[in-house]
Simulated scan of single mutants.
Amino acid sequence: MTQIFEFKSNGKFTVTVDENNVKIKSKGMLNYINKGSRGEKSIPIKSITAIQFKDPSLTAGFIQFAYSGSSESKGGVFDAVKDENTVLFAKKELKQAKELVDLIESKRHASSAPQTTAVSSADEILKMKELLDAGVLTQDEFDAKKKQLLGI
């Protein structure tokens, strides 16, 4: 499911999150002047190593995505404004910004969860047959394991 987040207060940002990617599209003169960027930046969720989040106060808040090969700005909001991996937002957009971060974090953790592969009974029987043929198992042991796997 694709979700779209619009931030319009400090520059114009559209962030689209699907199953695999975070896409940041910046529009407007403010973004062009600060970032010199146009178009859309796509970051694979599985490559995101960190998300820096700053609440808005006297200045804008921001969400900055770090990934292997990117350079994270270290100078707060003034450097973040120039970073193409950063989305700026105002106080009135704080709730939406937190929802965006929570969504991406949940997808990051889901994609990093170890994948377990189920081994079918047929695969197990084939392995047992190989052990029987190699002389590791006796015919009786093979037959007993086969019955167990088939539920007989």
Rank of each mutant, 00 (worst) to 15 (best):
Lys12Cys: 11
Asp83Gly: 01
Lys107Gly: 04
Lys91Phe: 12
Glu72Asp: 10
Leu126Trp: 00
Lys54Arg: 15
Lys8Val: 10
Gly61Trp: 02
Thr14His: 05
Lys23Trp: 05
Phe65Lys: 08
Ile63Gln: 01
Ala60Lys: 02
Gln64Asn: 15
Ser26Thr: 11
Gln3Ile: 12
Ser112Tyr: 09
Lys146Thr: 02
Asn21Glu: 12
Leu131Ser: 10
Lys35Gln: 11
Val87Leu: 03
Gln52Leu: 11
Tyr67Ala: 12
Asp123Ala: 12
Ile4His: 04
Gln64Lys: 10
Lys98Tyr: 04
Gly75Val: 05
Ser73Arg: 13
Asn85Ala: 00
Thr59Gln: 10
Ser71Arg: 15
Lys146Tyr: 06
Thr117Ser: 10
Thr138Asp: 05
Gln148Thr: 11
Lys23Tyr: 09
Ile104Cys: 02
Ser26His: 10
Ser71Asp: 13
Asp140Ser: 13
Leu88Ala: 04
Asn21Ala: 08
Val81Arg: 15
Ser47Asn: 13
Glu19Ser: 15
Gly76His: 06
Ile24Gly: 07
Gly28Arg: 09
Lys91Arg: 15
Ser42Phe: 09
Ile48Ser: 03
Phe78His: 12
Ala97Ile: 00
Ser47Lys: 08
Asp102His: 07
Phe65Leu: 08
Ser37Leu: 05
Lys98Met: 05
Ala110Asp: 10
Asp143Ile: 01
Phe5His: 02
Lys35Ala: 04
Ser9Leu: 11
Val101Gln: 08
Leu150Cys: 09
Gln3Trp: 03
Lys147Met: 12
Glu99Arg: 13
Leu132Ser: 07
Thr59Met: 13
Thr2Asn: 03
Asn34Tyr: 13
Ala134Pro: 05
Asp79Cys: 09
Leu131Cys: 07
Ala90Pro: 07
Lys8Thr: 15
Ile45Glu: 06
Ser47Glu: 14
Met29Asn: 10
Phe53Thr: 01
Ser9His: 14
Thr116Ile: 13
Leu126Arg: 12
Ser112Asp: 10
Lys27Ser: 15
Asp133Cys: 02
Asn20Ala: 15
Pro114Trp: 10
Ile4Ala: 04
Gly61Pro: 05
Ser111Asn: 07
Val81Thr: 12
Asp18Asn: 13
Gln96Leu: 14
Gln148Met: 09
Gly28Phe: 04
Gly135Glu: 02
Ala122Glu: 15
Thr14Val: 14
Thr16Trp: 05
Gly36Asp: 02
Thr49Trp: 01
Ile104Met: 01
Ser111His: 07
Met1Cys: 06
Lys74Ser: 15
Glu141Trp: 02
Gly28Glu: 07
Ala80Ile: 06
Leu126Lys: 14
Ala122Tyr: 12
Lys25Asp: 00
Lys25His: 07
Thr86Ser: 14
Leu149Glu: 08
